[in-house]
């Protein structure tokens, strides 16, 4: 079997659909978490969802739906703890993380399932996705995307300034709970492909990547979804290609690909930020007293190599923290 034959396999096609949807949903909700500076909330919910999966394995029901229920409960609990407490809330969240993971591993053991079964949920799996899973993934993704994109103005206002949003008449608490619930849902969506332990990376890394080049919230959101899709689908294909030689779960390859994209855009971001600073018009300053340079051996001109910035009726040459404008025989500091 060659690499291309893979795409004709049913399980691979299902995995690709799931990866694509995950790549859309996780960064969409992740953008709001990053905006609220709750980048690690996804990690917490992911750990709690492990218990949900284990309950599904124990009771013989679909782990996807038990994971959704437990993750939503965990997310609501975390949101309530966060709302009440300050430093203690942090510790309470940590307790929930560890409790979720430990409970999950324990219950899986009781259910008589081996570590391998759980592994598929922790780090994703290529061939574990059934037709039913694909359908639940589609439904959940549609819900997540409709709500996040439809309520974008409200969610943005609440995430950027809760006090302001409350005075504007929004039910801030409801929206915060909504974000937590949506995060829980998209985590369960991502569970099959990236796995619960790495899912948070798919919520955060695409946003960080997109931030490097975007300046507005909307482009950050759109860019994050794009990066998420490329990373999820690309990572899945990569892990399938590698599986000819070694066994790799798709989760790690997806996350590493996302991180690679972040690393690749980082210099671009640095360059763009530098450029936008240089392109920005100088602030309107009221007439400063005349200041000429002390000594200036270099002669500025068309091709002197220094950035020439138009400034009113003349040109300033920018170098070494100075803005020099020609004034007769000398240069002025502008």
């Amino acid at each position: 079997m060659t690499f291309w034959d893979l795409f004709s396999l049913g399980f691979m096609q299902r995995a690709l659909i799931a990866a694509l949807l995950t790549g859309l949903a996780a960064p969409a909700i992740g953008t709001f978490l990053v905006q609220r500076r709750l980048a690690l909330l996804g990690d917490g919910i992911g750990h709690v969802a492990v218990t949900g999966v284990a309950i599904g394995l124990l009771t013989g029901t679909s782990p996807t739906w038990t994971a959704v229920v437990v993750a939503v409960l965990g997310a609501v609990l975390m949101e309530l703890i966060r709302e009440r407490g300050h430093t203690n809330g942090d510790v309470a969240l940590a307790l929930l993380f560890y409790g979720g993971l430990a409970g999950g591993v324990l219950i899986t053991g009781i259910a008589g399932e081996g570590a391998a079964t759980l592994q598929a949920f922790l780090f994703g799996s290529l061939n574990a996705i059934s037709v039913g899973d694909v359908w639940s993934t589609i439904v959940l993704t549609v819900v997540v995307l409709t709500v996040t994109l439809g309520l974008l103005p409200q969610l943005f206002a609440v995430a950027s300034d809760p006090d302001f949003a409350r005075v504007a008449g929004l039910r801030v608490r409801t929206y915060n709970l909504l974000i937590a619930v949506l995060a829980a849902v998209s985590i369960t969506v991502a569970m099959r492909t990236v796995g619960l332990l790495l899912v948070s990376a798919l919520m955060v890394v695409p946003v960080a990547t997109s931030q490097q080049v975007a300046r507005s919230f909307r482009t950050t959101l759109a860019g994050a979804m794009l990066v998420g899709c490329v990373a999820a689908v690309g990572g899945l294909v990569l892990s399938a290609a590698l599986s000819f030689r070694v066994t790799v779960a798709p989760g790690p390859t997806i996350v590493l690909l996302a991180l690679a994209m972040f690393t690749a855009t980082w210099p671009l971001g640095v360059w763009l930020r530098r450029r936008s600073r240089l392109m920005a018009p100088f602030p309107e300053v009221t007439a400063t007293p005349h200041r000429s340079t002390v000594e200036h051996p270099h002669e500025h001109g068309e091709a002197c190599g220094h950035p020439a910035v138009p400034h009113g009726d003349h040109v300033d040459y920018v170098h070494d923290g100075h803005r020099h404008a020609v004034h007769g025989e000398h240069y002025d500091e502008h």
Binding site: D161, V207, T220
Partner: peptide, 13 residues
Amino acid sequence: GGVPATVREVVAS
């Protein structure tokens, strides 16, 4: 906030 936003976006909120 934690994500970049333009002046117009913040004002529009």
